[in-house]
């Protein structure tokens, strides 16, 4: 299995960007990431666009990991992949004290099955609504949001 890998980058104002890629499961060893982050009090931004899978054991690892980050540290989740958005909606403590800044919204063409994702910034109190638009593959105006707005963005309410 691919497992989970992470790398660090510097963001604005001493923020540390942590990009996670792969599966969050029982083998993710998130305690190692927690140990690395213990050395800093800088604001954290987790880029979760590369998370491919999360299983039930992985959720527990993740929730424990989020709990290990001091409440005084500013934490942001960004570019959350659809699988991450599903967890935020299903698991009460998944986001911990983090703010969800942006998510990947899934789109599908009802005519040809083409799929793509677009980054949506989360604006508190304003749930996005999507109209169908032209499919970049077949040209038909049938590219739709591939979920229900009220359930996909339920975490905002």
């Amino acid at each position: 299995m691919a497992g989970l890998v992470w790398n660090f980058a510097k963001g604005n104002q001493q923020t540390i960007i942590v990009k996670l890629t792969g599966s969050i499961d029982e083998d993710s060893r998130l305690e190692r990431l927690a140990a690395d982050l213990k050395k800093t009090a800088a604001p954290l931004r987790f880029d979760l666009s590369g998370v491919k899978r999360i299983n039930s054991c992985g959720v527990r690892e993740w929730v424990n990991f989020m709990r290990s980050i001091p409440k005084t540290t500013d934490v942001v989740l960004e570019n959350c992949a659809p699988i991450v958005v599903a967890q935020i909606n299903m698991i009460s403590n998944f986001a911990g004290h983090a703010k969800v800044a942006s998510v990947k919204a899934p789109f599908v063409c009802e005519a040809c099955g083409y799929e793509e994702e677009a980054t949506i910034n989360v604006v508190p109190g304003s749930r996005p609504q999507f109209q169908s638009r032209a499919c970049p593959k077949c040209g038909k105006p049938r590219l739709i949001f591939d979920d229900l707005e009220e359930s996909y963005f339920a975490f905002m309410s």
């Binding site: 899934p106 599908v108 739709i144 979920d147």
Partner: peptide
């Protein structure tokens, strides 16, 4: 179908 069909 699509994922939307599934969640509905």
């Amino acid at each position: 179908g699509t994922f939307k069909d599934f969640v509905q």
